[in-house]
Simulated scan of single mutants.
Amino acid sequence: MTAIGFLYPGYSAEDEYPRIEQLLGSDIRLQLVHTDIGEDAHRVDALLEMGSAERLAAGVEELRLSGAEAVVWACTSGSFVFGWDGAHEQVRKLAMAAGMPASSTSFAFAHAVQELGVRRLAVAATYPEDVAGLFADFLKAAGAEVLSVRGSGIITAAEVGTWGRDEVFALARAADHPQADAVLMPDTALHTAAHLREVEQELGKPLLTANQVTVWEGLRLADRRVNAPQLGALFTREPVVQVRD
């Protein structure tokens, strides 16, 4: 049995984790602990407070008692908003508090991009444009080339959590760039697990989404490799074949 712990901010798309757990197999357990988000706002000051060491440390003891082998801070905006160096410090403090390997969704994206060997990226964000731009800056610091960035102007995770298939498809299509090797959707409040393969097949390229890469990162920390085709190219490393009408 492999147990991975996740610190998830508030309540919006937490049901992605039991869905993904079912797709991974019976010997993997994804343990979720909710953190207090304070103000629900995709705004820099609110995000810095959401990702503070004190808020993350508050959920660590419950994860330790659950038997988790590694922990991931399941929040993209609440990690990249600290910048490349600040996000490293955030993860370092989390690992020290938890006494286990730690990472965050922002680093999960960086590592997933490296895993797939994709360098030219299109960002399809639910965030306001300024926050989406900070994610692009983080990816550039990781060595990627960001060809396009599209923000959606949504302030709260609660609103993002109401989005369904149609909104996910529309955002992916609108944000894609013809020369991009992959499309990234950086918000753990967004429901995407049920649509990954379908969107990839329409785009003809890998789709990396926040909860997908977060789970993959936790498994990477635990040295587990899982083949799960429903979770997209990241979990198969097979080429994406575009489906045409």
Rank of each mutant, 00 (worst) to 15 (best):
I155E: 15
D166L: 10
R150H: 13
H177Y: 04
E159Q: 14
I155C: 10
L184C: 04
V183K: 06
V168F: 15
M185K: 05
T192W: 03
P178F: 02
L147T: 12
A174Y: 01
I154G: 09
G151N: 09
T156M: 12
A158M: 12
V146F: 05
A172W: 00
T188L: 00
A174K: 09
A175V: 03
M185I: 15
D187A: 13
G164C: 10
R150Y: 09
E145N: 14
P178S: 01
L147P: 03
L147R: 08
H177W: 01
I154P: 04
G153S: 04
V183W: 01
F169W: 08
M185L: 15
T162I: 06
T192P: 08
S152W: 11
L184Q: 05
T162Y: 01
V146H: 09
A182C: 04
W163A: 10
G164L: 13
A157G: 15
F169K: 07
D187Y: 03
A158D: 13
A157M: 13
V149K: 04
F169Y: 14
T162G: 10
T192L: 04
A172L: 01
H177R: 07
L171M: 13
G153R: 08
D187M: 03
T156L: 09
Q179F: 08
L171T: 12
W163T: 08
V168E: 05
G151Y: 06
Q179D: 15
V168K: 01
P186E: 06
L171V: 08
F169S: 09
A172R: 06
P178V: 02
A144E: 05
E145L: 11
I154T: 15
A158P: 06
V183D: 00
A144T: 14
I155V: 14
R173D: 13
G161H: 01
A189D: 04
L190I: 00
H191D: 02
M185W: 01
D181K: 07
A182T: 00
S148H: 12
A170Y: 04
H191W: 07
D176V: 03
T156C: 10
I154R: 12
L171I: 07
V160E: 09
A174C: 12
L190W: 10
V149A: 08
G161D: 12
E167Y: 01
G161Q: 09
T156P: 07
D187K: 01
L184A: 07
D176N: 11
A189E: 02
P186M: 10
A174R: 10
A180L: 05
A157V: 09
V160I: 15
I154Q: 13
D166Q: 13
T188D: 06
E145K: 14
V160F: 05
Q179A: 15
V160D: 11
I155A: 14
A172T: 03
A172S: 10
G164N: 09
E167M: 03
L171A: 11
A172V: 06
W163Y: 14
D166W: 05
T192V: 15
M185A: 12
V168C: 13
A172E: 02
S152N: 14
V160T: 15
P186L: 04
R165W: 12
D181M: 04
A180R: 00
T162N: 11
L171S: 07
G151P: 10
D187L: 00
P186R: 09
H177F: 03
H191E: 02
V183N: 05
R150A: 11
D166F: 06
T192A: 15
P178I: 08
